[in-house]
Design a binder for these strands. Structure first.
Length: 274
DNA sequence: AGCCAGGGTCTGC
DNA sequence: GCAGACCATGGC
């Protein structure tokens, strides 16, 4: 049970299980958060957000009740039972090491358009470079919130641009994909509210109509942006790992939260070497 | 220099 | 249906 205190300048949460900001914000699901002196800074819904966590506590700075309830809590997925998922995965002899490695991982519910663009950029790319491209995209075409912090560009803004306009971002061949995605979101061809209400397979089909979006990118959007825990993005790393772990797929009882398991595995294989 | 990076499209069998 | 070339860019 969470104990939440709404202060004048911050909101404090006590009683969090399986919650570690260092693991959540640096496991390859998001690309804009930075950590300094134990405080994580990012931008959500056009606002600068600062978070500090320790143990079962979380402090959200510069935050009132409304912003916490409407934006922060859903973003950090505070009300999903990660303890139950973690315990379940611990009991699996092939996956328990991955679960033990980072027990505080959670799946963020990021803004869908930002998630879509971020994972379009991710294709055939590496994480440091993804971060650089996303950062330049925001600085170049997002609204400045306060000194040095930018909102993610809106679909309308990006849909008005050309490949040449995007050249400074150095997104390479992905620039044309970003523009098509922005156009389809801006004109309603892709409607996130509608997609989030659909079952996984149908939702995926609605996203892959975008030029440059295949199953993997679609599943990342569904998992990290639309809250679909059963989405299971398979990249080269997960593909290799699954070949030795579960060639026929995850055990059936894990299907409802396969995406959480995927994140445990991904973070483990990427960070446990050495 | 060559390979790889949280892939997808297009072509040719 | 499936393999292979190709796509920009940058770090190692």
């Amino acid at each position: 049970m969470l104990n939440i205190t709404y202060g004048k300048e911050s909101v404090n949460v006590i009683g969090l299980n399986n919650f570690c900001l260092d693991e959540i914000l640096d496991c390859g699901q998001c690309f804009r958060w930075t950590s300094c002196d134990g405080v994580w800074t990012g931008v959500i819904s056009g606002r600068v957000v600062r978070l500090k966590g320790s143990g079962d506590k979380l402090c959200v700075y510069d935050c009132d009740k409304e912003f916490f309830d409407n934006v922060i809590a859903p973003y950090l997925d505070l009300y999903y039972d990660y303890e139950a998922v973690h315990k379940s995965v611990l009991q699996d002899s092939l996956l328990c090491n991955a679960a033990k490695f980072a027990p505080g991982i959670r799946i963020l519910r990021q803004q869908p358009f930002e998630t879509l663009c971020s994972f379009i950029i991710s294709q055939n790319n590496n994480i440091p470079r993804i971060k650089g491209i996303v950062s330049r995209l925001c600085e170049g075409f997002g609204e400045e919130i306060s000194d040095g912090y930018y909102a993610f560009p809106t679909p309308d803004k990006l849909s008005s641009l050309s490949v040449d306009d995007l050249a400074p971002c150095r997104a390479g061949f992905r620039a044309k994909y970003l523009i098509d995605a922005a156009k389809k979101v801006a004109d309603g061809t892709v409607n996130f509210d509608e997609i989030s209400a659909l079952p996984l397979d149908e939702a995926r089909e609605k996203l892959t109509v975008i030029y440059g979006v295949g199953n993997k990118v679609a599943d990342c959007v569904l998992l990290y942006g639309l809250g679909k825990k059963d989405a299971f993005p398979v990249d080269v790393w997960i593909g290799r790992a699954m070949q030795t772990l579960y060639p026929e797929g995850l055990p059936a009882h894990m299907t409802p939260y396969a995406g959480v398991v995927q994140q445990y595995i991904f973070h483990h294989i990427r960070n446990s070497e050495k």
